[in-house]
């Protein structure tokens, strides 16, 4: 019991799964939770890079599964948060080395280690390995961008999750640009949920500080001034069951406009 397993997945690749996993891991650890992140995107490993832990890898997920090391040996402890761990993906090995049952067993072992959260960075849904990542999940977060093709693929994933009895999952809409939404050039959060009809757990704005943060191995959540960072912290609080209102993403809205809205004006 105890630990909650949260799998972060998507239909399309490159929509922000790894970014989300890293930031939720850090945000939960900052709130005093014991967290292990598992990079289940075998072959496309990069959670370790985004976490700044690449040079500390000795053993990986496949080594645990195949019994070449003990679980603790493959858990890399974060520099800043002693209760935040990463189990890296194998870089090169055969993608079929891990089965869904292996992932369930691993999650159970981590539960015995006293974790509060186990976050699994999943491959995109059409790929092999998706079922592994989803097998032990108590909760599934689906990341999408506000683009027609990404939403279409996310819809497919909701269908697959329902088939695996893990559905429907909760949605994270990442990289939204309010100025484009306002001009009608980008899908709004409402447009997205109108199609997917599932619960939204977070809306993350496009933010210039995300990419440099990932490159330097310091997830953007640790940057107090970043709006994406705040959005990720809010998602972490919602995971904990807090009722956090969605932030106002309309940066351009001036003070007076906000006031007049408050007083019921235009």
């Amino acid at each position: 019991m105890g630990a909650k397993v949260v799998t972060i997945t998507s239909g399309k690749g490159g929509v922000g799964k790894t970014t989300t996993t890293a930031n939720l891991g850090v945000a939960l650890a900052r709130m005093g939770k014991k967290v292990t992140m598992i990079d289940a995107d075998i072959g496309l490993r990069n959670l370790d890079v985004v976490m700044g832990l690449e040079n500390r890898i000795v053993y990986d997920l496949v080594d645990i599964v195949e019994g070449r090391c003990r679980l603790r040996q493959a858990m890399i402890k974060h520099k800043q948060f002693p209760e935040l761990y990463l189990i890296p993906a194998a870089q090169t090995r055969d993608k079929t080395a891990v089965s869904p049952q292996d992932m369930v067993n691993l999650a159970n072992q981590l539960r015995e280690e006293g974790m509060d959260y186990i976050l699994i960075d999943s491959p995109a849904g059409i790929e092999r390995g998706f079922r592994n990542a989803v097998a032990p999940a108590d909760e599934v977060l689906i990341v999408t961008n506000p683009e027609v093709s990404a939403v279409r693929d996310a819809d497919r994933i909701v269908g697959l999750l329902e088939a695996e009895n893990k559905g429907p999952g909760k949605l994270i809409i990442n990289r939204i640009k309010m100025d484009m939404v306002r001009k009608g050039e980008m899908l709004s959060a409402n447009d997205v949920t109108d199609i997917l009809a599932i619960k939204v757990i977070g809306i993350v704005p496009e933010d210039e500080s995300v990419i440099p943060a990932s490159n330097s191995g310091i997830p953007v959540t640790l940057n107090e001034g970043s709006r994406a960072g705040l959005a990720f912290r809010n998602i972490a609080r919602r995971l904990l069951g807090e009722d956090v209102p969605f932030m106002d993403l309309d940066e351009n809205k001036g003070f007076f406009q906000r006031l007049s809205k408050l007083f019921g004006g235009a």
Binding site: V148, R152, D153, D155, R156, V158, G159, E162, I195, A197
Partner: peptide
Amino acid sequence: RSGRRVHSRGHVVIVGDVNP
């Protein structure tokens, strides 16, 4: 949902949406 294909030699009734 997206990617699903339903085929019938008879009629089809769907209680739910048919997504893009």
